[in-house]
Design a protein around this nucleic acid. Sequence first.
DNA 1: TATATAAACGGAGAAGTCTCCGTTTGTCAA
DNA 2: TTGACAAACGGAGACTTCTCCGTTTATATA
Lengths: 199, 199
Amino acid sequence: MRDAGAGSNRSERRDAAENRRRILNAAITLFEQHGVQPVSMNQIAIEAQIGSGTLYRRYGNKSELCLDLIKDNMFLLFEDITAYMAQNRADPPSQRLTGLLRLFIRFREKKAQLLKGVEESGPGDRLRYRTRNPLYNELHQLIVGLFDEMGAGQAQPNSVFKADMVLMALSSDAYSFQRDVRGYSPELILEKICSTFVS
Amino acid sequence: MRDAGAGSNRSERRDAAENRRRILNAAITLFEQHGVQPVSMNQIAIEAQIGSGTLYRRYGNKSELCLDLIKDNMFLLFEDITAYMAQNRADPPSQRLTGLLRLFIRFREKKAQLLKGVEESGPGDRLRYRTRNPLYNELHQLIVGLFDEMGAGQAQPNSVFKADMVLMALSSDAYSFQRDVRGYSPELILEKICSTFVS
DNA sequence: TATATAAACGGAGAAGTCTCCGTTTGTCAA
DNA sequence: TTGACAAACGGAGACTTCTCCGTTTATATA
């Protein structure tokens, strides 16, 4: 799990590995101290005692750095999800979807700041959709599967689109909006999503 | 329509009005020439031959400037919508919703770049939701009304939430994703939205 | 017309992201 | 052990967004 950091190339040079550790440690320290959003890449470089060029060669932006920081937790989430899906394979798909979303929402509550950090790429958005991070595709596939099961009889289950909508509803922006502006609790949001998309 | 620019205070000083014209002209010129996203506030200030402080006092960020540039078109859109709603008040609400969304999608296709400019506020997102621009509340209210009509019999129509979801689906990010990544046409997106949320 | 004054101006500069490129350094083969 | 050299380093600097504040100016009032 340590050297899966940025794709498994031919082994990493020792100084590079050392710097990666320093970067991650610095980021963790600063994020714990000030939160994710207000910490700049420069601050991280300084805290890690490396040049900013070095930082940027490894992580093209803060988003990538945040991603590296929650990768481990993401693996754990997927283990939980996989276990849940296996244990409850007899339940109707709508119920499994609820369970899956509940796990994800729990994760999102715990890692809200980093997740937000992952989803925003900074200024000059180069044609990147906030929706495209590794989490997305994995979850999307699972959800499409469940919608397909639910709509097995229908002509057009529209599972791909519906899954996109569900995940959109769980993006940092939409989710925080429901939390903070609409004032809904996580459990209520889950309920509303299910009642809207499962019906 | 000219002096409704930023709220109707006691009349605008002549030099200020002049500068506003210059800013808007500069922005239009540059946006036509290079597109919205790659043009910086500095470039606009230079093209308008004013100091950047002057530009920023009038428009706190590019988003506000873009908003001013489509305001007129937004009014036209709302006129269209109001007319449509009046002419078709006898139709079932689901059909009126489709019509409303079709009008909005047409608008969004025409003003895609500026709309994207409006929705992104630049780096350092100060607790602002991409979803909060004037368009949002107006449309949201209309859509909530239609959902309420549709679900008049049900216990929890969840109209507010559903309206949020529909508008989320029509945000620049989600919409472009469906267009560019999923490869759906505007008409197909409209269909999918309706079949997902109207059921 | 003169003048006080609130409003508007403008540009230096703080702080951030990210690139470029000359320098340094691990590593591997000889 | 010794080069050779790809890889990694680092910081200057280009370009942004946005603020601060001393200066200028349009306008209302006397």
